[in-house]
């Protein structure tokens, strides 16, 4: 659990982060979203003390972060940034092994961990371990950056626009991979982004920042259906709201008994996918399948009622 308690940062007279208070639950993803210059990066960097707060406190599992040396704190917290920041003179394997080495892990354990992570991120160890970062594609570099952040099995992972430099296809793949890994290791993730779509997709909770202030801290459903200020509503995009709500829920929860005509939709698809398919094929209901077996149907009426704030 990360407790951010009335944290403030000013440079000279300018307040960059203004009395932000929020609590991030263990094993959850908190997406910090806002326009450029709103103080997201500064807020994130205060968690691992790359920036020292002007006032306020941050506690991790109840322990004030100021009670530990900054460098020791950082070794326990994964940190991945836009443009990855890989060390250009060190091989992929050495980059990933950075924190384990700092922590004094023995050679075999470190090597095994590097292998494990390379495989997790679909990079063949035999092929990639000894390459230099510049010999990788942008997407591969980004994955190595996240692998390095996760190497010492931190409970917390801080990410500053980690997918910002990726093209859309690689980007959505990287987002899916991140969610899979997050669920597998139950990592607490604080992720900064300027993209509301990404925040809604990844966040269990979303923190909306503007001019250093926290405007709203709530679940994606609440942010979409009850934006706290006009600015939050604008970030979401008013015309997009029904679709964003639909994209948050999966077909599985809304299956009705019965069947319908035509090709089935998978139970794991989002309501948004189902809605698109209904409109496209001009049907009023879709059969729902699980592992290839039709188990029920989902109807247009139901979707419409879910696309409104409840």
């Amino acid at each position: 659990m990360i407790e951010i308690d009335a944290i403030t940062k000013s440079y000279d007279q300018t307040v960059v982060v203004d009395h932000v208070t929020l609590t991030i639950e263990p094993s959850s993803v908190c997406a910090v979203v806002g326009t450029s210059g709103s103080g997201k990066t500064t807020l994130l960097r205060m968690i691992n003390r790359l920036v020292e707060p002007t006032s306020g406190a941050i506690r991790i599992d109840g322990e004030d972060t100021r009670n530990t040396h900054a460098y020791e704190l950082r070794r326990k917290i994964g940190y991945a940034i836009q443009g990855h920041g890989l060390f250009p003179h060190r091989s992929v394997g050495q980059n990933i092994a950075t924190v384990p080495k700092l922590l004094g892990w023995d050679k075999d354990k470190t090597r095994a961990r590097v292998t494990e992570l390379l495989e997790l991120f679909q990079l063949d160890p035999a092929q990639f371990r000894d390459r230099l970062p510049r010999e990788l594609s942008g997407g591969q570099q980004q994955r190595v950056g996240v692998a390095r952040a996760l190497a010492a099995k931190p409970n917390i992972l801080l990410m500053d626009e980690p997918f910002g430099a990726l093209d859309p296809v690689i980007r959505s793949k990287a987002q899916e991979d991140l969610l899979t890994i997050q669920r597998q290791f139950e990592t607490t993730i604080v992720l900064v982004t300027h993209d509301m779509e990404e925040a809604i997709h990844l966040g269990d909770k979303i923190a909306v920042m503007d001019e250093g202030k926290l405007l709203q801290f709530a679940s994606p459903q609440q942010i979409i259906s009850k934006p706290a200020t006009p600015f939050v509503a604008e970030l979401i995009g008013t015309g997009e709201r029904p679709f964003k709500l639909l994209s948050l829920a999966r077909v599985g929860k809304f299956v009705e008994p019965g069947s319908a005509e035509g090709d089935p939709i998978d139970i794991s698809a989002t309501l948004r996918d189902a809605y698109a398919e209904l409109l496209w094929s001009g049907r009023a209901a879709l059969p729902v399948s699980e592992k290839g077996q039709v188990i029920g149907k989902i109807t247009l009426d139901q979707l419409s009622s879910h696309a409104r704030p409840q």
């Binding site: 691992n48 790359l50 460098y71 020791e72 704190l73 950082r74 070794r75 326990k76 940190y79 940034i81 836009q82 443009g83 990855h84 920041g85 890989l86 060390f87 250009p88 950075t98 924190v99 700092l102 950056g145 390095r148």
Partner: peptide, 11 residues
């Protein structure tokens, strides 16, 4: 980014 990462990993 390299300087930032070096700090961020806890060197």
């Amino acid at each position: 980014t390299v300087a930032e990462a070096a700090k961020g990993v806890g060197m």
